[in-house]
Design a protein around this nucleic acid. Structure first.
Length: 491
RNA sequence: GGGUUGGUAGCUCAGCGGUAGAGCAGCGGCCUUUUAAGCCGUUGGUCCAGGGUUCAAAUCCCUGCCAACCCA
């Protein structure tokens, strides 16, 4: 990456040559009066007539040299615009400078709009300014940048070379913007709570640990937002949400990045059904306003539609019914030993079921491995076993289950939501007996907060990265995170 | 953590025991409406790193590093 080669050497020589001519190819400022793509669109729509003077700026991404004239493509975030430079118009000296610009250089261009004989909207160049000289060559123009490692480590190259990648991240930003607008419209207050926590609560996950020098104590990076947002419910912020980074010190995969973006929202005087309406409305609004459709198509590398997700209908089904669909109608009537045997022998889950697994975990493995991946269309899975969810309230109609749902789309859990536990005594017991192995330290301050009284509330979490994967048709979480975690490389 | 695949020019990739290759990019030339422009010429390499086998290794073997995918 930092080794020099002939191409870089050549560009440095060109830089020196420009300076020798009294040209500083790194400008402080240049103000275009239009975006490149914007100008192109407005010209196509007839809003800017032929001959309109225009000033644009962007990166030079292609050039077609015709001898005494030259076409170059200039690109900014709004799109591409062709510039037509003629020796006659610029004069010999300036035309020579223009001809020796490199792909990747930023230029500002002034001229008039016209249409070439092939119909391409273009700017007839009258003058130009070099805004930033690129000292390294850009990736190849036709194939783009394919090397996944360079794509992730040097995302800027990926963004400049691959239009679809840039589009994905622009859309991700639009998704997040729309989510914020949705919550603000419903009267939610956006807050920021600590990422560095003395006790990392709200989820059973391995935390990252850090040390605060001045305070002389250990902190953990948060694994969830939950416990601080609930403190705010206690404090009287009845509708509250946060979008922020969580950190989990666990494995990396197509669906897991150590830091990921979570949205959590809490609504006082709501419950899990309130949250069901909310998540459905939210996802529909985001899809409609960002993508313009409620039917999401995922495409494979050949551009064929490989999956279609219909956000118009949302199924509601209980956890038990789904497990019975996969594992047999009598699954819950046989003995725990028989369930374990069937899971291992009949359902081939031997590798997924640890010897120490309790009965509910055996069923949990069936759900996670065999049911969840099949839930492509929007599905609210309700009535989960209470052992799985220590922070939720029991279902009045079936106290073995809790008032929660997991919203699954695209074969992944996208949003869990609960009727939140607000009984401090029951909450303490549940945390003390928390299932799932890792006993987390009790957050006494949180329990004290509950003892001051938390209104009944519905709570919701949405994994923003996974939501984006679903909406934007990306198979890997790394393709919706600008700078995914990679091992540092030594040069 | 285990398995599979990959790492060759700036980029995209061939080559898979016998002199290191192509396209694009670059450089020089021709061309004033091209758009993956075209034509002629040309530069460019620690073949990921380190060991080993061999008369000979980018190629076969081992170890390591990095990445992607699958599994845990």
């Amino acid at each position: 990456m930092d080794d020099t080669n002939a191409l870089i050497e050549q560009r440095r020589i060109k830089l020196a040559a420009l300076r020798a001519k009294g040209i500083d190819p790194f400008m402080n400022k240049f103000t275009p009066d239009s975006g490149c793509g914007t100008a192109r669109e407005r010209f196509e729509r007839g809003e800017l007539p032929e001959g309109t003077p225009i000033t644009v700026a962007g990166r030079m991404t292609a050039h077609r040299d015709m001898g005494k004239s030259q076409f170059v493509d200039v690109k900014d975030v709004t799109g591409r615009l062709q510039i037509y430079a003629q020796k006659q118009a610029l004069g010999d000296e300036l035309y020579d400078v223009f001809k020796h610009l490199d792909l990747g250089d930023f230029i500002g261009a002034r001229g008039t709009l016209f249409r070439t004989k092939t119909g391409e909207p273009s700017v007839k160049l009258e003058s130009f300014t070099i805004l930033a000289k690129a000292l390294r060559p850009p990736p190849e123009k036709w194939h783009g940048l394919e090397d996944t490692e360079i794509r992730y480590r040097q995302r800027y190259l990926d963004l400049m070379a691959n239009d679809d990648v840039r589009q994905t991240f622009l859309l991700r930003s639009a998704v997040v913007k729309e989510i914020r607008a949705f919550f603000h419209d419903r009267g939610f207050v956006e807050v920021e709570t600590p990422m560095m926590q003395a006790i990392p609560g709200g989820a059973a996950a391995q935390p990252f640990k850090t040390h605060h020098n001045a305070l002389g104590c250990e902190f953990y990076l948060r694994v969830a937002l939950e416990l601080y947002l609930k403190r705010l419910l206690v404090g009287g912020i009845d509708r509250v949400f946060e979008i922020g980074r969580n950190f989990r010190n666990e494995g990396l995969s197509r669906r897991h990045n150590p830091e990921f973006t979570m949205l959590e929202a809490y609504q006082a005087f709501g419950d899990y059904e309130t949250m069901m309406e909310l998540v459905e409305s939210l996802v529909k609004r985001v899809a409609q306003n960002v993508l313009g459709t409620l039917v999401i198509q995922h495409k494979n590398s050949h551009g064929e539609v490989s999956r279609e997700i219909d956000l118009r209908t949302w199924r509601r089904v209980t956890y038990r019914d789904l497990v019975r669909e996969k594992a047999g109608a009598d699954w819950f009537t046989v003995t725990p030993a028989e369930r374990r045997r069937r899971a291992i022998d009949d359902l081939k889950l031997g590798g997924d079921i640890a010897a120490g697994y309790e009965d509910f975990e055996v069923t949990g493995a069936v759900f996670e491995k065999l049911v969840e991946p099949t839930l492509i269309q929007p599905t609210f899975v309700t009535h989960l076993p209470r052992q799985l969810v220590p922070l939720a309230k029991l279902s009045p109609d079936d106290p073995e289950t809790v008032e929660v749902f997991e919203c699954c789309i695209n074969g992944q859990e996208i949003a869990p939501a609960y009727t939140e536990q607000n009984d401090p005594v029951a909450q303490r017991q549940a945390l003390e007996h928390q299932a799932g192995g890792e006993q987390q330290k009790l957050d006494e301050d949180f329990l004290v907060a509950l003892e001051h009284g938390m209104p009944p509330a519905g709570g919701l979490g949405i994994g923003i990265d996974r939501l984006c994967m679903m909406l934007l048709g990306q198979e890997s979480i790394r393709d919706v995170i600008l700078f995914p975690q990679l091992k540092p490389k030594n040069h």
